[in-house]
Design a protein around this nucleic acid. Structure first.
Lengths: 243, 243
DNA sequence: CTTGGGCAAAAGTATATACATGTATGTATG
DNA sequence: CATACATACATGTATATACTTTTGCCCAAG
């Protein structure tokens, strides 16, 4: 009989910790198979429901794999990918304690180019909304934001005052995003970008291309250009909010 | 008494669906407060444990917020952030059907600079591993990878042959990552980077700075420089794998 | 009016029990 | 030898019950 630590945390958390510790030390590493629920009940002296809860939560957290009728196994090492988080720039600037301001350069309805229509996966040509906004941090331009918006999902996009509401906030509020595609690259500033961001032509810019979906429909396409010298995308992330 | 649909799914899933549906239609939108567990027990005719499980899972999925002694509430709309995924470059290249090859330029033990020691959050000066590797896609250099590795977590790092095993694979295999910090920026190539990547000095590069933790200890610090013209980070992501 | 105690209500935890369902395996039968 | 069945064992689900912890609120005492 193993005695679990006498801490304040609930019992199922102690069981989870016990299991994680044994995974970590490789004690169950032989065939990566864990003791059965009933064996854990016997060795830990807790009820099966408690063991079951611990195992279920570790499974949903990705540590374990369970097969009914077979057993519980240590999950293969975490998928080799890491996530970074991209936040709303307006919120981010304010959070840093700086002043955010935006300037609307363009807000119009256009017929998409063939390439754009393709990106929207439109079967036929329909007009779309188009906006260009510059975001300032303490009066220094940091981001040039060009957006193309599917009007069937977000009507009235062209009626908004985006110097007050961030485009991002408006879109997030209007339609749920079910999928996002990002492409991040580094490009030299062209003449127009350079002018809007107040940097030299050819200066390094971080370029973020984003498409969002609502269901099967492409909702927005955004091209975000950051002045490379003034901005970097940062994030800190815990792959698994374990235990 | 509400009757839940007569499908094959388990009861707690039906309860989850019922709750999600009521959130979606805004039925409980007034003060965003849900019926208590006991009220749901009465109205749905299931046991409290079942209701509790449904509510607990919806809470951990981010849909609800529960306060002991107070009640259950609809969570505010999803945090306004999106995630992008950064994959192992070697695997990525192979997945694209291209040939991956790496060249080890440096693999040594060094004393960290003051700045580096600070990044590692070292209390005192200890030596660390240092590697510089160039990754090729079809013989075209795409990434310059400089890594600093905490020897207390990953001994023998300097004994590896990283032209065979990707550093990433080796590290992932040796120690679990509990937290990751990323900073992405766009910088012009310096002379050395330009030489290794075969690009012009001053050309745009995507620069990824990464720190990984194992528990409270900084495990690795990586500086990944991508030739901007040849590479972009891409990902597609579904924010909520709900219910 | 303010404070503090006590009560009710809500979620959180833990257990015992039962049955359902999926899987592997051994055994008897053709 | 092969198939079908029985069985044992694993996880999955559902309930009843009991107790704990936290919170909000009413009400009485000061």
């Amino acid at each position: 009989m193993i005695t679990l630590p006498d801490t304040a945390s609930p019992l199922y958390e102690k069981v989870k910790d016990y299991i994680l510790a044994n995974i970590g030390t490789g004690r169950w590493g032989k065939d990566r198979k864990l003791p059965s629920e009933n064996e854990l009940v016997a060795s830990l002296g807790v009820s099966r429901m408690t063991v079951h809860r611990a195992l279920r939560e570790l499974t949903s957290a990705g540590f374990l794999i369970r097969l009914q009728g077979v057993g519980t196994f240590i999950a293969p090492p975490r998928p080799q990918s890491t996530l970074i988080e991209i936040n709303n720039i307006a919120a981010e600037i304010v959070e840093r304690g700086n002043r955010h301001r935006s300037e609307v350069l363009v807000l119009e309805t256009i017929m998409p180019t063939k390439e754009l229509a393709l990106s929207f996966e439109f079967p036929k040509r329909v007009s779309i909304y188009h906006s260009v906004v510059v975001n300032f941090e303490n009066d220094l331009p940091v981001q040039l934001e060009e957006r193309f918006v599917n009007p069937s999902l977000i009507p009235d996009y062209d009626k908004q005052d985006f110097s007050k509401t961030a485009t991002y906030d408006y879109l997030m509020q209007k339609t749920p995003v079910t999928e996002v595609e990002h492409i991040i690259s580094a490009i030299p500033a062209d003449a127009e970008t350079a002018r809007h961001l107040g940097i030299d032509v050819g200066a390094c810019c971080l370029f973020l291309h984003r498409r969002t979906w609502t269901g099967a429909v492409v909702a927005t396409i955004s091209k975000l250009t950051y002045a490379g010298s003034r901005y970097s995308l940062g994030s800190r992330y815990s792959p698994s909010k374990s235990s």
